[in-house]
Computed example of a mutant assay.
Amino acid sequence: MATTLIGYARVSTADQKLDLQTDALKAAGCVKVYSDIVSGAGTKRPELDECLRFLREGDVLVVYKLDRLGRSLSHLMEIIRDLKQKGIGFKSISDGIDTTTSTGQLLFHIMGSFAEFERTLIQERTNAGLKAARERGKLGGRPVAVTPEIGARITQLRGEGKNADSVATELGIGRATVYRYLKSQTALAA
């Protein structure tokens, strides 16, 4: 089965140019190049999605640089793992990574270990921070928008025939908050 190289390029803003990446991908032998103009943090990348659907077993996804593909190291590792499961290789031109070689496979596994280590550290720091906050008497989550006093006032104003918009305006809360409170009271009454 012949190996087909498929490229993916991405820039963050419309005033940035894709030329450097697309030229390098074509020079590397890519027969087709998909490209997005979207921030790396963005979750919607239609051309990447289309590229991943297009790839077939034996193909190789090629990027100019690792950061063009994944939102984070763990996201990058997830994409490359999915490719491997489908029998699709991965190359990064600038980073010298090629999962179609044994050295590239080793590098991929080392990167995976770092991604797992990073996830574990983040989880440990989050848990330690939550524990410290609890010890200081702080609770996590959003502050309660409807205190018992505000709830009583919502009920009173609605009983006087005021609509949700005027109740929300008078109490300085959102209309959706008024509706959520009323719905919760209805559910409690049932």
Rank of each mutant, 00 (worst) to 15 (best):
M1A: 13
T3C: 13
I6A: 05
G7C: 05
Y8Q: 04
A14S: 15
Q16F: 03
K17R: 11
L18P: 05
L20R: 14
Q21I: 00
L25V: 06
G29F: 08
C30N: 05
V33T: 10
S35R: 07
S35Y: 08
A41V: 11
A41K: 15
T43E: 14
K44E: 14
K44I: 12
R45G: 08
E47N: 14
E47K: 14
L48R: 09
D49R: 13
D59L: 11
D59K: 12
D59W: 10
L61Q: 03
V63W: 09
H75S: 06
L76D: 04
L76F: 09
M77A: 02
I79E: 07
I80R: 07
L83V: 04
L83S: 07
K84P: 00
K84M: 05
I88P: 07
I88G: 10
I88Y: 10
G89C: 12
G89F: 02
F90H: 01
K91A: 11
S92L: 06
D95C: 08
G96W: 00
I97M: 09
T100A: 08
T101N: 11
T101E: 12
T101R: 08
S102Q: 09
T103F: 11
G104R: 10
Q105R: 13
H109V: 00
G112P: 10
G112K: 06
S113G: 14
S113M: 12
F117H: 12
E118L: 07
T120W: 10
I122P: 09
E124H: 10
E124W: 02
T126G: 06
G129S: 07
L130A: 01
A132W: 01
R134V: 00
E135S: 03
E135T: 02
R136P: 00
G137T: 03
G140F: 02
G141D: 01
R142C: 03
V144Q: 06
V146P: 01
V146N: 06
E149G: 04
T155R: 14
G159Q: 12
G161V: 09
K162I: 11
N163F: 11
A164N: 15
S166Q: 15
A176E: 14
T177M: 02
Q185H: 07
T186G: 11
T186E: 15
